[in-house]
Design a protein around this nucleic acid. Structure first.
Lengths: 354, 354
DNA sequence: TTGTACGCGTTATCAG
DNA sequence: CTGATAACGCGTACAA
């Protein structure tokens, strides 16, 4: 009963070396090899030397999986993006990987496609990996997601936005204020009819937040908001159509300036304007958002508000690293790190008085 | 000796639920819960129902870490990009995650920054995760990396390129032929002086491959290659300077057409040309590579060769899934999947006979 | 269909 | 500084 006929075959996969193989070769116990990796200062110089040579020779790499299970803390940071393919999130990812790779942490990535529900699914899937930290890119979650986050008991960073009264760490900038800043740039020049153009898809809630900042700035100046929602998905085409709309309107009701949700729409406007004989910025001033590379090359060069996308990713990762390094006892209240945008003022946004 | 004074405290982290907690609640053994997740058809309908309810209620998520260790095969696919922040690799990543997330596989990402040595480091780091497959984005590796790949004994896919005589699966397109195709596009129109412009950084070896394809096409037509290497890193500026260089040259030695390594350089050229009174494509025809969104909006609209970036990522993931699903016994020889580029012929590349 | 026993490769704990 | 032992949470093999 206590001894089956055969002593049960090993389940080892061929070619897999373990900490014990290394230990045997070095004539030490396996725990010493473990210490060699985790707390080398507790291993004598002589043994360390011997182990280094053996590990190099047989190309041994410790199993993160086994280590994670045994220690309870996997060296994993999970991040959920809203649209991995976009330049915005690609830069965020680069900032995070650059910082995490250096610390030996592995980044696990998921794509939520701007959906709360997909974000919830991703969080749930990540639970199984026992992450040491979680980086999100929105601050409104489903109740189920909030519950999981609260129960997780690991550092959670909400990157990209910058919001008050959240229980988690914030790294980013206030999007509403970004809209306000661009609007004020025009108001300060004396413009009174300023339009804001939203993209076709409602999914990007950040764009909506910027529109709210625009509306606040207009209201504060005693002006009427003029928000238009695009009717095509191609950003360049949106810009082109806006130019056509402006041309079709009587001069005295035309917007003097347009703030576009992103630089691609603004670029579409500028490229189309030069095509149909419209004189920018005299006929209509333009500003974008994002700091796209092409913005400086357009004629007129595009004024844009450039967020520190890479820096936000980097800072989010740094925040995680600090929290992991800190004494878990010192409960740090949710921090907020502002990574400001840079307003690049160029020719396109100059208000020309008639 | 065999019984320490205290029966050794549990190392369980507070709040962590295990398969056994679920089993206890359901009044079954833990293996039944395991089967519920892995082979539900082997669990009776009644038990399944009960488990479903309990798992939902307590929010249990199986540990991927423990499961991976026990089964020997983690549900992990590792991918190494060359520049995560670029649109190219961002699209690849999206294609891969879209496909893998649906299959419950987790993507582990690393960034090699176009460095063979960093790629080797990333492969080594990935070894510790016992990946079920590996996706690379180059086909020349360090000897150490090749050795690890050979020893790994898991599916390896080299994405983005399309090369013969590699021991691994290929998904992509031949970059040299991309250069050839763009060059022929001009030669077929009767052009004889065609220039190829490489970026400043030598790191992107794919650009060099496209240049080789250009050189072959020129040689095949009995023409002399005219490859220029950019002297600034800003792609738009490169394009602008090329236009200046063309204008400075006598008309009868000017290139009739330029193939740019990427669309941003080409866009820089077009934007600058309209600025300094150069008439494109009459004065010089232009083609780019990449299928950037802005290309269609330029004046003249830019001819470009658009690779199926998303599709390549997707197909690389599909290849991985197929190989994982296939009988491991059937050793499939390295497959090659061509994801062709699309030549978008627009106004910028029309050769105008004087 | 369900259960028992044990191992996966590593680390925490305690002992020397 | 080094080692023996047990645990981490789950899946495989085998038995019922």
């Amino acid at each position: 009963m206590n001894r089956p006929s055969s002593p049960r075959a090993s389940r080892r996969k061929a070619g897999t070396r373990t900490i014990r193989d290394v230990a045997a070769l070095a004539g030490v116990s396996s725990i010493t090899v473990s210490r060699y990796f985790n707390t080398p200062e507790k291993v004598s110089e002589a043994v360390r030397e011997r182990l280094r040579e053996i590990i190099d020779r047989i190309g041994y790499v410790p199993s993160q999986v086994a280590g994670g299970l045994a220690s309870g803390r996997g060296r994993v940071v999970c991040a959920i993006m809203q649209n991995i393919a976009s330049a915005t999130f690609a830069d965020l990812v680069k900032g995070m990987t650059d910082e995490l790779q250096a610390s030996g942490l592995q980044l696990l990535l998921a794509n939520a496609c701007y959906s709360q529900s997909l974000e919830e699914d991703a969080i749930r899937a990540f639970l199984g990996w026992h992450p040491s930290a979680l980086i999100l890119t929105r601050d409104d979650h489903t109740p189920a997601a909030e519950a999981m986050l609260a129960a997780l008991n690991i550092p959670v960073v909400e990157a990209w936005g910058y919001v008050e009264d959240r229980p988690y760490h914030q790294v980013g900038f206030p999007h509403a204020e970004a809209g306000t800043e661009l609007t004020r740039h025009f108001l300060d020049q004396g413009a009174r009819r300023v339009r804001f153009v939203l993209p076709y898809a409602e999914e990007d809630f950040r764009a909506t937040q910027r529109a709210q900042g625009y509306a606040r700035a207009m209201a504060a100046a005693g002006l009427v908001s003029d928000v238009r929602r695009a009717d095509v998905s191609d950003d360049y085409e949106v810009g082109a159509r806006e130019i056509d709309a402006v041309r079709a309107a009587p001069r005295d009701t035309r917007p003097q300036a347009i703030v576009f949700t992103n630089d691609y729409m603004a670029a579409g406007a500028i490229l189309h304007a030069s095509d149909c004989g419209m004189d920018l910025p005299a006929d209509c001033a333009i500003a974008g958002f994002g700091g796209a590379g092409v913005s400086a090359r357009l004629k007129p060069a595009l004024t844009t508000l450039r967020p520190g996308r890479y820096q936000i990713g980097q800072q989010a990762a740094r925040t995680v690293l600090q929290l992991l390094a800190a004494d878990p006892a010192t409960e740090p209240s949710a921090s907020r790190t502002l990574v400001p945008c840079e307003l690049l003022v160029r020719e396109s946004s100059r208000i020309v008085r008639p």
